[in-house]
Design a protein around this nucleic acid. Structure first.
Length: 373
RNA sequence: GCUGGAAUCGUCUAGUGGCAAUGACAAGAGACUGUAAAUCUCUCGGCUUCGGCCUUCGUAGGUUCGAGUCCUACUUCCAGCA
């Protein structure tokens, strides 16, 4: 069982430490998205410097290239990428379901590679095998997303996710035995709760999965903050209190992080911060700014006054504006450092505020200012 | 000086007589939440009561119902010959 120490609880929120074979994660924590075994535009040295505690790679992408076998050959994900800290892998479910021409069956999902069109059948078992071979500390179960927002589609996807989860657990246990026998480190499995916006389905999903021997939970299928608090309240009051929960894919909007932490999520991952950065949209305490806008041409202040990131400590908005206008990669690098730091730091402050009892005040001040206008 | 060729939106560029006029870049703005995303979308002569109106294709004339497109002259640039 994955070791998760909880230092403090406040309502559904918790402050804790997840202990993985590759190191600890102080939660709540923002996990960097390193989909193709890299955080786009950043080195892992830079990720470390900006305070990132863990990264999440994607099974779908790594399955296609370079293949899990090669990553194993390179010593497993952490060694291969030289990130000497905790790692997660997403199951590939989300990506595969977002591809065109996916054929779903009880067995798995048949899809065509977005790279060369080659056909594959991804199953819960193959996802588990691939994730074990990749070797991240924490794996997500291979789940199914709904084809539409309709209740019947949501329910079907949830029920299949549950059936697949039992298969994931069986395969995970088999692989665990095999890998531990070789003297390799333990790897952990998170189930993924589905149910869309339907609270009764979320409840059913949480109850079903709470009874299963998984190490933690991913909360999936969340696309909007609308109703997220109620959904998380429902789910997190049912899930076992001593196991970590990861809010899948949320974190582009700071409000999601506050809501997530407040209602019982311990880790988050999101491609938003780095993608926004590459597209010139930078976080400030007053909301995002588009650094390419003409108004920043002569703005010689940092992106965020007082921000301790490499970008803000050394550079001005005018300089970033220039780098984006001439499309220099350094602009994307600095912007990514800033955005990633901004989000990591915000979640770290959420942790601190939970510890010292100032969470509600911090949340109010932050969100009122960030979403003013 | 002679002989050819060329002049179109900030730049380069398309343009059989019915064109406010092609495409690219630049410029301006927007989007992005388990990354097919260093991506995508919109605007880009002026005015507008959104129906239109006005001014545009080196300059000045002309032919024509109608000219960026044809004719004449001029100006500038390029090439070749002197």
């Amino acid at each position: 069982m994955l070791k998760f120490d909880i230092e403090k609880r406040e309502g559904l929120a918790r402050v804790g430490v997840i202990h993985t074979p590759h190191g600890d994660i102080k939660t709540p924590a923002f996990v960097g998205a390193s989909t193709r075994a890299t955080v786009k535009a950043l080195t892992f040295e830079q990720m470390r410097a900006l305070g990132s505690q863990a990264v999440l790679a994607n099974t779908y992408h790594l399955f296609l290239k370079p293949g899990s076998k090669l990553i194993r050959e390179g010593g497993g994900l952490a060694d291969f990428i030289a990130w000497h800290g905790p790692t997660f892998t997403d199951s590939g479910g989300f990506q595969i379901f977002s591809l065109p021409d996916v054929k779903l069956s009880e067995e798995g999902a048949t899809f065509k590679s977005h790279i060369d069109g080659q056909k594959f059948l991804m199953t819960p078992e193959l996802s588990m095998e691939t994730q074990w071979e990749i070797g991240a500390d924490i794996h997500m179960a291979f789940d199914q997303l709904a084809k539409s927002d309709s209740r019947s589609d949501m329910e079907q996807a949830m029920l299949r996710t549950h059936r697949w989860l039992t298969r994931c657990i069986d395969e995970h246990d088999r692989l665990e035995e095999e890998y531990l026998a070789k003297g390799l480190p333990e790897q952990y499995l998170f189930g993924v709760v589905q149910g869309g916006t339907f609270l009764d389905l979320r409840k059913e999903s949480a109850e079903f999965e709470a009874a299963l021997p998984v190490d933690g939970y991913g909360i999936g299928g969340v696309f909007t903050a609308d109703g997220m608090d109620e959904m998380l309240k429902t789910v997190c009051s049912i899930l076992p209190k001593d196991r970590p929960r990861h809010l899948l894919g949320m974190g582009q909007e700071p409000r999601d992080l506050f809501i997530g932490a407040e209602f019982g999520c311990d880790t988050f991952d999101c491609v938003g911060p780095t993608r926004m950065a590459r597209n010139g949209s930078l976080y400030t305490l007053d909301g995002r700014i588009n650094i390419k806008n003409a108004k920043f041409e002569h703005d010689f202040t940092p992106i965020v006054e007082g921000c301790d990131c490499e970008c803000c400590k050394n550079h001005t908005r005018a300089y970033l504006h220039h780098l984006f206008k001439v499309d220099e990669i350094t602009g994307k690098v600095l912007a990514s450092i800033h955005n990633e730091r901004f989000v990591v730091h915000t979640v770290d402050k959420i942790r601190d505020s939970l510890l010292d009892g100032s969470f509600q005040q911090y949340k109010k001040e932050f969100l009122e200012r960030y979403y003013a206008r």
